[in-house]
């Protein structure tokens, strides 16, 4: 059960960004994609997530656990995404941000899932906090937990550690990689930083074509 990506061509107008790329990310594995600016790393993630702008053209196939998903709308793909910015919703408390991600169900179960998530994050007293009052690391962890609470079957990380300071970056890496490994979620990670590479055997370097 894995995330499989087969790109015949990913282009912007006449410019080819990615060509003949095949990735197979097993559950719990983190596959890293590196490359120069403009080499199509983030566009590759957008193609997997289904948020590619219409000016791009994706020719290829994305399957998740054997199910083809690139023809589905974003909301039906069950692929979570984390960006450089934590993108916590500014109009919601920490608890409301997490609750937003929990799938529909009995209110008690949804609340319990959020309480457990806050405990896992070691932020039990922050349920009603304004996200803006959290530290950078706390916000990044809440953002990851929010993505996980939606029960994604794959996770895309678009330079999620780049805005953190060096010490925090290492702690967040450990936290993220341990969490996705424990949950068996395949992860595609885009980064500029060699230190982010979780497994050198699972590394793809994109170059400008």
């Amino acid at each position: 059960m894995s995330l499989q990506l087969s790109v015949a061509r990913l282009s912007l107008g006449e410019t080819t960004l990615v060509q003949d790329l095949h990735l197979d990310v097993p559950p719990g594995a983190v596959h890293t994609v590196m490359g120069d600016s403009g080499s199509g790393k983030s566009s590759l993630l957008a193609a997997v997530c289904g948020t590619l702008a219409p000016v791009f053209r994706f020719e290829g196939k994305v399957t998740l656990h054997g199910r083809r998903i690139d023809t589905l709308p974003t909301e039906a793909r069950r692929v979570g995404i984390l960006f450089q910015d934590d993108l916590l919703f500014a109009h919601m408390t920490v608890r409301e941000n997490l609750l937003f991600a929990v799938p529909p169900g009995p209110r008690g179960e949804r609340e319990a899932a959020v309480a457990q998530a806050l405990a896992d994050l070691e932020l039990p007293g922050f349920a009603h906090a304004d996200p803006a009052t959290l530290s950078g690391g706390q916000r990044a962890r809440v953002s990851l937990m929010r993505a996980l609470l939606a029960q994604p079957q794959a996770l895309l990380l678009d330079e999620p550690f780049s805005r953190l300071d060096a010490a925090l970056r290492q702690r967040m890496r450990d936290f993220v990689f341990a969490t996705v490994r424990a949950r068996g979620i395949p992860v595609l990670l885009v980064t500029h930083d060699e230190a982010d590479v979780a497994d050198p055997a699972r590394l793809t370097r994109l170059t400008r074509l």
Binding site: E75, D85, F89, P152
Partner: peptide
């Protein structure tokens, strides 16, 4: 930021319209 927040909400399973109204 808001366009990305909408993407994030959709990646959690929300339809574009529902994501718009809630986020």
């Amino acid at each position: 930021r808001w366009a990305r927040e909408l993407d994030a909400a959709r990646s959690m399973g929300y339809t574009p319209q529902r994501a718009w109204w809630r986020v």
